[in-house]
Amino acid sequence: MAVIETIGLTKIYNETIVPVKALHEVDLSFDQGEFTSIVGPSGSGKTTLLNMLGGLDKPSSGQILINRKDITTLKERQLTNFRLQHIGFVFQSYNLIPVLTAIENVSFIMLLQKHSRKKIDQRAREILEQVGLGDRLNARPSQLSGGQQQRVAVARALASRPDFVLADEPTANLDTQSAFNLLDIMEKLNREENITLIFSTHDQRVIERARRVITLVDGAVAGDEKRQQ
């Protein structure tokens, strides 16, 4: 069953001045548990597509159905709540909260979701163990390496068991070993927790590991390859 579906998704920037078509009539569908890379050259619309799927930007036209609910019709407050409850985000620059420890960063989304303290603590420890940071629970981001920070970011995104996770170039700032470690972890969590993962990336290492690769060129879908692994 499709978790996410886009129908005729179009985004035009500067519509009234110099229109720039970032996405053009994109029709895509993502099933539960997919591990997808969105690839394409710079300016092809990868980030725009991710922003649309994450409810961070509104399309100029078209629909985005998440669990059959059109999120383009939601008001800002509803969208905020929707993001909180259903979507996990991993950013290129980790973007952890610098004043919180690893376990606090991971607990953060769940605290906003108002889960019980006990449950939050248990889940945060569990997922940090899974990403190999069980011994760095109380380390602040500044005390962690880039790879470790990105693993905390992944743990934060996955901790609340969202419907899907959007990762914008998550390995771009990592060395090869850290990138492979991160991909191993994400693949494992994808398999174990059946969470849908969608990456935008230039990174060949990520593309090779993806089970589906969608290629965007000039805002349109130029390829959609599904692989058996």
Partner: peptide
């Protein structure tokens, strides 16, 4: 700015 944008992205309410 960036941090605030990220916090709002991940679902923190503007009021919070």
């Amino acid at each position: 700015q960036r941090e605030f944008g990220i916090l709002l992205s991940v679902g923190m309410k503007r009021g919070q």
